[in-house]
Design a protein around this nucleic acid. Structure first.
Lengths: 236, 236
DNA sequence: CCTCAAATTAACGTATACCTAAACTTATAC
DNA sequence: GTATAAGTTTAGGTATACGTTAATTTGAGG
């Protein structure tokens, strides 16, 4: 659940005591290590191994594994432990289809809200940051700003379920995007697209906002998947 | 998440032995009881109570609770056990926004696939079933056929993540739809819309398919939410 | 009667124990 | 040497035990 929904991404509100439950520590640690490719795609670990690695018993470990499985980051098979799921081009197509649909819709929603420039500042800032990053040929900074833009786009809708969903699928594609970051052509078109989406939102033109954003993501998805095929990256 | 994603809706493939793990039994039973309003919105249960109710220990019970929480059906608060989450009009708006975006996109996807009438038969059948149900004033049958239509629509895309997502959010809105089923005006327009979506898909007109479906769901969502406000149903 | 602190209770988070069955190893038959 | 069967190991599913801490109750002071 995906992150499923609900608490999956949210930091579970906990009492005034600062203590973080082991189950959540395990979840956070494993997730970070999966996204950071410390636990690479395809790698497997028995419950016991993970528990030892995290200095806790199998119980909270298991709970974390269940949550990660619901989010689609790992697979749990009896007697084989937890396996970090590799992402195939087909998976990436599924992920992009979903992100495309949700973000395009979000862009339309924002356009209908008649927001002022002040409220959209986070979006505008992100676009400018992307420009700067491109100028200085800092692809990592560009990727960060790109993520910031897409994250703010859905964040401004205020739809918590939507925000969590986008985060979940962003995470699923994380490794693939990182792997291919330096294989892509310079993403100048991306920056243009983002600016056009912001303009459409400011003009309260929902149809255009949706359309541009959809095409933007569709294209990005196609480029990425083509790249995967060209480089024979069938399972990342 | 979802169901988060992944295994959430899928029946976990299990060995040739027919035995179903307690954790999964618990998940299935609780989910069924929540959707069927046997465990009504707002009701709370301690881990121990659920465990006793299901004739098992707290361990598999907890695992089921975690999964249900990830899917957004319940909330788990230390010392208060599991609480079946009530759905507010705002929740319903979030849910409909997501379903609308995803299904409209699915309709567009299908239109681009150049499918023949044979492949779309499940969709066409569902529309006809809805007609029959309306003629015989059988609202429950209509709701079932309506669900079948929407389920087939995303099913035909073959996108497993998408299919799971739609199922998750369908579940989240289940109680609300059932509660309001007999408060709605006769859904004649719905059947028209569905037919138009099928036509657009057959005509390989993605933009129209997306548009009609989006408007269809938007309208349905607005009608539903208006109904909730009129009847002061703030938490179902 | 009300307020706040101390004492008590109990729900949960976690660790551990246990048993079953799948995976692996060894042995036996051909 | 291969195939099958018996024996062994071990991972995981579940139950249970235990300590911590939040919630509740009790009681003292006003």
């Amino acid at each position: 659940m995906l992150r499923g929904q609900g608490l999956a991404t949210d930091h579970k509100t906990r009492g005034t005591t600062g203590r973080i439950p082991f189950a959540e520590q395990a979840y956070n640690a494993l997730k970070q290590q999966i996204l950071g490719n410390v636990l690479p795609a395809g790698s497997q670990f028995l419950e016991q191994e993970i528990a030892e690695r995290l200095n806790m018993s199998r119980t909270p470990t298991r709970e974390a594994m269940v949550r990660l499985a619901n989010e689609g980051l790992v697979e749990v098979r009896p007697r084989h432990g937890m396996r970090v799921l590799p992402i195939s081009p087909k998976d990436m197509a599924e992920i992009y289809d979903i992100i495309t649909a949700l973000e395009a819709s979000a862009a339309g929603t924002l356009a209908n809200l008649e927001l002022d420039k002040q409220t959209l500042k986070p979006l505008i800032d992100a676009v400018e940051e992307m420009d700067r990053a491109l100028e200085s040929d800092d692809l990592q900074a560009w990727a960060d700003a790109d993520h910031e833009f897409h994250s703010q786009l859905v964040g401004l809708t205020g739809n918590r379920r939507l925000i969590n969903l986008i985060a979940t699928f962003h995470d699923q594609g994380q490794r693939v995007r990182m792997t291919t970051l330096h294989m892509r052509p310079r993403p100048d078109k991306s920056n243009e697209d983002h600016r056009a989406v912001v303009d459409a939102i400011l003009a309260n033109d929902a149809a255009t906002a949706r359309d541009i954003h959809r095409r933007h993501r569709e294209t990005a998805g196609k480029v990425l998947i083509k790249l995967l095929h060209e480089h024979h990256l069938t399972h990342i």
